[in-house]
Every structure is written in structure tokens, then in C-alpha cells.
Design a protein around this nucleic acid. Structure first.
Ligand SMILES: [Zn+2]
Ligand SMILES: [Zn+2]
Ligand SMILES: [Zn+2]
Ligand SMILES: [Zn+2]
Lengths: 134, 134
DNA sequence: ACCGAGATTGACAATCGTTCTCAACAAGCC
DNA sequence: GGCTTGTTGAGAACGATTGTCAATCTCGGT
């Protein structure tokens, strides 16, 4: 039992290109826009491949994913668990750590007998700069 | 200025049907599934109308919306601000209030100069019952 | 360096949830 | 009862994502 889910992951030009393009962006980006960047940047990568690469990165914990406005956004993030404060105008992102919130989530879930927890904690707003431009 | 955004909202059979169907469900439901329930329940309501009605309810604060797995889910909720603890298997939902978390969100956002805040805080897991069935 | 098994790619079709269009309809008001 | 105007619904349109599958490429073994 305990199925051997080891996914033999090969290193390809495309995956590296996606990994780099993602790391190059400080903000959260969609698969579509990342694909565009790659294309205009000269790199030829299929859209489907970008989707697959991003999904793989997220699965391997090399990227964080969150859905906003109907689409999924990805970002190269610190490997440790954290949350985000995101500017909904320019995309600027701040990684947040809040042990207190983690504890709260675990405690309240336990109180109700829930297990196999997972949670989403994200704050959206306008950063100082974007707020000024108005 | 300060545009008069008063949206004259009429009372129609369809909207009432959606409101009722939503209230009848203790869990979060998608527009599609709610439409199905209504249909099989004899009520004839167009799918587009269900989408519109749910969006209106959410806008009026009569329902909470959250996106999970690519689709938007709705639930008739307490009118006061709160968050959710959701069983990802049976959908059972517990409303949570956490002033501490609210404060944390406001404080950390302010520290970074963010304004016009909004946040999502949801905990997913398996409720005691669903966890037992395994 | 050469092979071969099997993972990966990419152009395109197919899905899926959601929104748009617009003519027929109905709620609220005189 | 009429009128004004928000509302409805069937179907088309849309945008994001996933599936298809033959051609291609990676990598461990030789
Ligand atoms: Zn900004
Ligand atoms: Zn956390
Ligand atoms: Zn459950
Ligand atoms: Zn809150």
C-alpha cells in the first residue's frame, strides 16, 4: 500500500524557462500572461506546457497558487508556509507569517472535530503607491 | 458626484425561488447545482437568472460567496462579517468569528501602507463524521 | 556515444463555468 | 388599464483550463 507516488520529473528547456520567468516576476501572474511574457521574450513554449509546468511547480511547493477573479495566479515564493498581502492594482505582494493565525485556525478547527486541514488567508488592498495615484 | 447607485430591485418569482432554494441549503452550493435543484423541484428558472440572482444576493450581503475548485459557491449566511470552516467532503459549514484575526489583518496591512482592504480567511478540512468514514 | 522506454511537448479540439444578447415579459406606479 | 423599465430565458459567445495524440526529447543503461 502507501502507493509510490514518486513522479519522475524530467528537466526540460520549457520547464526551466517557466521556472525562470516565474522567479523573475515579483508579483502573482496567470498562466496566460506568463505564456505571453515567454513568447514575447523569444522563448517558444506551448500554452498547455506553461499550465502543466506551473501546476507541477505548485505541487512541488516551489510556487504558491491562489485564485483571484476567475483565474489562478502563481508566484515563486518562500518554501515555508505563509500568506499574502496583495495590491489588487499593481500586484505587489508581501509575504506574511502569522503563527497566531495558524494557531487560531488549528484550534478552532479542532474544536469542531475537523481534520486534514488546509486554509486560505489572503489580504487584498491597494498599496500606498497605487492609493496615491488617485 | 457620489453617483446614486441605487439599484431598483424588483421582486420576482424567480428571485424568490433562488433565495428560498439557497436558504434551504445548509452548505455552499454552486449556481449550476442550485439551478438543477430548482429544475428537478419543479420550478422553472433560467440558468442565467440563477447566476444573476445569486450575484445580486451576494452584493446585497444576503449571501456569502467563495470560490473553490474553479467555481463560485454561495451560501445564505449571517449578515455580520465572518469566515468559514468547511468540510471538503460533505460541505458542512461552520461560521466563524475571530475579532483577533480581523485585527491582525488590519494591523499588518496598515503596517505596509495598504488601504481599501478585503480579505479571505477560510479553513477547509474533513468534519468528524466524514473523517470517520475512512 | 548509442539505445530504448517512457516522460514531455505543442497545436488544436473539447470542456466548463460564466457572461452577453436581445426580444418577449412582468412589476410597480400613475 | 396603460406605461416605463427592470427582468427573464434560450442560446450564442467567451475566457480559462484541460484533454488528445503523434512527434520529440530525457536519461539510465550499455
Ligand atoms: Zn499597488
Ligand atoms: Zn497559514
Ligand atoms: Zn463532512
Ligand atoms: Zn474577516
Amino acid at each position: 500500500m502507501t502507493a509510490d507516488d514518486t513522479a519522475p520529473r524530467r528537466t526540460t528547456r520549457q520547464r526551466e524557462a517557466v521556472r525562470e520567468a516565474l522567479s523573475a516576476s515579483e508579483e502573482f501572474v496567470s498562466a496566460q500572461s506568463l505564456h505571453q511574457s515567454l513568447r514575447t521574450g523569444g522563448s517558444t513554449v506551448g500554452l498547455a506546457t506553461v499550465y502543466r509546468a506551473l501546476a507541477a511547480l505548485a505541487e512541488d511547493g516551489e510556487a504558491d497558487a491562489l485564485q483571484s477573479g476567475g483565474e489562478v495566479l502563481y508566484r515563486a515564493c518562500t518554501p515555508t508556509h505563509h500568506h499574502h498581502l496583495i495590491c489588487r492594482s499593481c500586484g505587489r505582494t508581501v509575504e506574511l507569517e502569522a503563527a497566531a493565525v495558524e494557531r487560531w485556525a488549528g484550534r478552532v478547527a479542532a474544536e469542531h472535530g475537523f481534520v486534514e486541514l488546509e486554509h486560505t488567508v489572503d489580504i487584498f488592498g491597494l498599496c500606498a503607491e497605487c492609493a496615491a495615484e488617485r
